[in-house]
Amino acid sequence: MTQSTASLQIRSDTIQENPPISLLKLEGRFDAEGLPVVLAEIEKSRSTGSIRFMVDLEEVTFIGSAGIGIFLSLVEELNSEGGGVVFLSVPEAIQRIFDVLNVLEFLQIRNDQESAREILLSGNA
């Protein structure tokens, strides 16, 4: 399923049913206008009981502090429920912002879905 704003596209999929793993793929600028759409997609997946997420950021060109805040909050929330979040293919510019905020150590970042899946299923996300 795909949702979009003027500058951001969000595609959500369930890539595994049992236990469920949700995939969110973002493309474009994740700025303030994209926040409600991303939140809605996360909530939609959460409402199905999913506590394991992959967030593909490969095509994201910009992310603001509020977008990072949503992700950090999701990580903490899902970790406390025994699930987790793995970020896929994070561009250098986005990693730099994570680094500026000193949050890289709290995030799981991988370059392929298979290793992301392993982490999510191991309970170490």
């Binding site: 502090s65 990072i68 805040g69 950090l72 909050s73 912002i97 905020l101 000193n102 949050v103």
Partner: peptide
């Protein structure tokens, strides 16, 4: 204090830090 999980979970108030560090 990004080491505090409550701060991360709140998910707000990071903009100033980004400005300062950028």
């Amino acid at each position: 204090d990004m080491a505090d999980p409550h701060v991360r979970r709140r998910g707000r108030g990071f903009g100033l830090q980004i400005i300062r560090k950028s």
